[in-house]
Design a protein around this nucleic acid. Structure first.
Length: 284
DNA sequence: GTCCAGGTTCGCA
DNA sequence: TGCGAACCTGGA
């Protein structure tokens, strides 16, 4: 059935499809018989990586997949903006140099991260798949689109709670309603500079600094966004403030933003991924 | 049974 | 401004 396959040669910079899809940016991809299956917006696709190429089916979604996977990011230029002689960051990059920042649909990213508050990755994934299957449009091959704001607004808060969203149901429903009504307009917000985009996102229920920055980074392509969650705060504290126990979270946030430069979102992702997979910072 | 997880929000000093 | 507590739920 996978005869309609596009084969695209990969750029020279390392790329790791599996790590990129599993690095806590998106939560709906499933690995099945060598292929990663899921949805690019409203299209079911399957992708796999061979030695030097990326294979995508159906073939006519190849360009969309390329962009989704951040494969047009000039990694050498991005790395060049990082602070020189930063040991911890170099270690994190070496751990998984093939990571990319995904370019996902804004609404899907926003909604997914609203449901992520105080959840483990496995739960976020469960909720994402549940929402798709109950309120999203069925695509091909058992893949479902992420539900539209209208669909979640119509579903109602209690229906969302029944899917295990807990207190996040209220936030997700209220935000979906604001967007469905046009009161909040993500398409319009695309044009805002980073600072204003962050302010706008934070006005939405269930969206604070962290989720706003995740949405900007993974859903609006803003590489200057710098989400600080418990993992990133822990490792920044441990790696860059080892001698001072009493540094405040605010001070750490300011450090991160000033230290890592204009592509700090990528730095964050390297550090986060490394810390999570090596359990760095979890033991005291 | 207890504890905690990619946070946000509200109330009170 | 700054800090603490509450908030749902499922898995370890």
């Amino acid at each position: 059935m996978d005869s309609d396959v596009a084969t695209l040669p990969l750029p020279p910079w390392p790329f790791d499809l599996a790590a990129t899809l599993e690095s806590g940016q998106a939560f709906h991809w499933t690995h099945d018989q060598g292929w990663w299956r899921g949805a690019l917006a409203d299209h079911a696709v399957a992708m796999r990586q061979t030695d030097a190429a990326l294979e995508i089916t159906p073939a006519h979604h190849a360009a969309a997949a390329w962009s989704y996977l951040g494969l047009d990011d000039e990694m050498s230029e991005i790395i060049a903006t990082f602070p020189p002689a930063d040991g911890p960051l170099a270690v994190a990059m070496q751990f998984c140099p093939g990571l990319r920042i995904l370019r996902q649909p804004a609404w899907e990213t926003l909604a997914t991260f609203i449901t992520s508050a105080l959840k483990q990755v496995v739960h976020i994934r469960q909720i994402s798949l549940n929402l798709r299957q109950h309120f999203g449009a069925p695509l091909a091959n058992g893949i479902w689109a992420y539900p539209s704001p209208e669909s979640l607004a119509n579903a109602g808060e209690s229906a969302l709670r029944q899917l295990g969203l807990g207190f996040r149901a209220k936030s997700l429903h209220r935000t979906a309603t604001l967007i469905a009504s046009g009161e909040a307009d993500l398409a319009q917000w695309q044009h805002l500079p980073d600072a204003d985009l962050a302010k706008s996102l934070i006005t939405l229920p269930g969206v604070g600094t962290k989720i706003a920055h995740c949405t900007m980074l993974f859903g609006f392509g803003r590489l200057g966004a710098f989400p600080i969650d418990v993992w990133v705060e822990r490792i920044l504290r441990e790696l860059y403030f080892k001698k001072k126990r009493t540094v405040t979270a605010k001070r750490i946030a300011e450090f991160g933003i000033h230290h890592f430069g204009p592509c700090r979102g990528y730095a964050q992702q390297f550090l986060f991924h490394h810390a999570r997979l090596t359990k760095l910072g979890t033991k005291r």
